[in-house]
Structure formats: C-alpha cells, structure tokens
C-alpha cells in the first residue's frame, strides 16, 4: 500500500503540473474515503497520490447574482453548514446530509463524490437537477462539462488524464423553485443508496414547470428521467398526477440486482420516492 509518492501542493498550478506529468499514474486524493479503501484492497495501484487538501484556492463556496460556485474540496459537512447553499441549493444540502456518517461527511469532498463517477453518489442527482456544470482544467486548457454528461459508467468519466475538477457551478434556486433529494438504503446511516431521486421544479400554485428529475443507483450512471419530467411539465400537483408520474419513473429506471437490492424493489421504490417527494412539494 505504501509504494507510492504523495504530493501535497499548495497551489492549483503546481497540482496541474504534477497531474500532467503522471497522467493516469496518479490518483487525486480529495478526502480519500473511497480511495484509501481501494488502495488497501489493491483495487488501484497508482505510482503517486495527489492530495488537494492544502490548496486553499479549491476550497470555497461563492456566489454572484445568479450563480453559486463550489470548489471541489468542500466537504459534505461544510456544505451542510453553508448558509448560501442552504438558502439557494437546499436539494444539494439534502444530498450532503445523507451521505455516510458524520465522520465521513467531515472528510469526504463534493469534488471526490462527483469525480468517482458512481451511480450511487449522493451529491450527483442534486447537482444534476440544479443543472450544474463542472469546470475541468489542465495545464493546457479549461473546459466546462454539464454534470449529466460527466459519468460514463461506474468509475469511468469523461475527465482526461491531465485534468482536475476545479469548480462546480450552478444557477441559484429562485423563490418558486422547489425540489428534493431522497434515497432509500439498507439502514439509516452509513448507507449506500438502493435507489435515489432528485427533483427540481418551479412551483406556482401547485403547477409545475422547468421540471428536472434525476435518478441514482438504478442505472450504470446517474440518469435524467426525461419522460417523467416531460409528463410533469405544466401539470398541477395532485395525488393522481403524482401516482402517474411514479408509474412513468418506474419504467425509466433500469436497475440491476446486486448485494443491496433487486430489480423489482428498486423499480418500485423510485416510484414511491418520487410520488412522496412530489406530494411533499405542495
């Protein structure tokens, strides 16, 4: 486990240079709650680790008039404690609150959760419904990727070997914007989702518009539930609509049977979560 170098630069420029030098032989340590376990189990054997923990310029939550910008090394606990996020991105805070345990939330970062490209990541569905963009930087260039285009399959994403995630940005939720993130797991803490649903919509006198619905843990990556969102667009919220939406979202989920749950239960549960979440918006 110890046959690697550890870099802990203090500036982003240094980090980008190191990353460019090692490319896929270096792993980025942004909290380490997943990576350290993988190193121990020898699932990954990097030549070096690049820790982001000392780079102050990657640790921020900022806002302008319309947008929020988050640095990748913001921990889940920091996000939960952020006034800005609680005010303008409550859905993301909900996701941060239900990840792991207090100990894990104190050290695990949002950037790490995103770059893992896991279908069960608790911050990704919220960021997806918020329409987040990811800023990926290398020494040569900078580009922005919509978060829903980031992951390809478990553990694989579009990030290039010389790139580092430097920012997560999204539009603030406005007064009429409502939403939720809810998951079902095997227990009440330290729990990985069997299925999760995030939703954001503009709600005016129970009428929905600009609906986004995103599902976690029911496909190889976090997926947009386009049909469900389209169905809900312009609808007035009531029991019947919520139930119909639940049936549609079940058909959009493409889960597998694994250690945590099975196909039937997962399909059923995304429907229940959505239905209850929708009724909770009234």
């Amino acid at each position: 486990m110890k046959d690697f170098k550890i870099y802990s630069p203090t500036t982003l420029d240094e980090a980008l240079e190191i990353k460019a030098k090692y490319l896929n032989n270096i792993l980025i340590l942004a909290g380490g709650t997943d990576i350290v376990g993988h190193l121990k189990d020898k699932l990954v054997k990097p030549k070096a680790l690049l820790s982001l923990s000392k780079i102050i310029e990657l640790n921020y939550i900022e806002q302008d008039e319309n947008k929020i910008m988050i640095g990748p090394s913001i921990t889940h606990s920091e996000a939960v404690g952020s006034e800005v996020l609680n005010r303008y991105a409550g859905i993301l805070v909900e996701g941060c609150k239900v990840l792991g345990s207090p100990q894990i939330r104190n050290i695990a970062t949002i950037g790490g959760n995103v770059v893992n490209a896991s279908p069960v990541a608790d911050t990704v569905p919220p960021l997806c419904v918020l329409g987040a963009n990811l800023t990926l930087r290398s020494i040569k260039r900078e580009r922005k990727v919509p978060i829903e285009n980031f992951a390809i399959c478990p553990g694989k994403s579009v990030i290039e070997d010389d790139e580092i995630l430097t920012q997560i940005s999204f539009t603030k939720m406005e007064n009429n914007d409502k939403g939720f993130y809810k998951k079902t797991g095997q227990r009440r803490a330290m729990s990985i989702a069997k299925a999760s649903v995030a939703l954001k919509a503009s709600v005016q006198s129970d009428k929905l518009s600009d609906v986004r619905v995103v599902l976690g843990a029911v496909a190889p990556k976090v997926i947009l539930a386009m049909k469900t969102a389209a169905f809900l667009e312009g609808k007035k919220l009531d029991n019947d609509i919520a139930q119909q939406a639940a049936r549609i979202v079940e058909s959009e989920a493409a889960p597998i049977t694994d250690l945590r749950s099975n196909i039937d239960y997962r399909k059923m549960i995304v429907g229940v979560i959505l239905e209850r979440g929708l009724l909770g918006l009234r």
Binding site: Q186, R187, R188, I192, L259
Partner: peptide, 16 residues
Amino acid sequence: IINPNFSTYIIPTALD
C-alpha cells in the same frame, strides 16, 4: 463470501 467487509455486511448503526 461476496460481502466480507462492513460496507457490504450490514449491521445496525446508532440511528437504527
């Protein structure tokens, strides 16, 4: 045995 650790072998937590 396919769940030989505590992230996959599920025991109750304080919240349960």
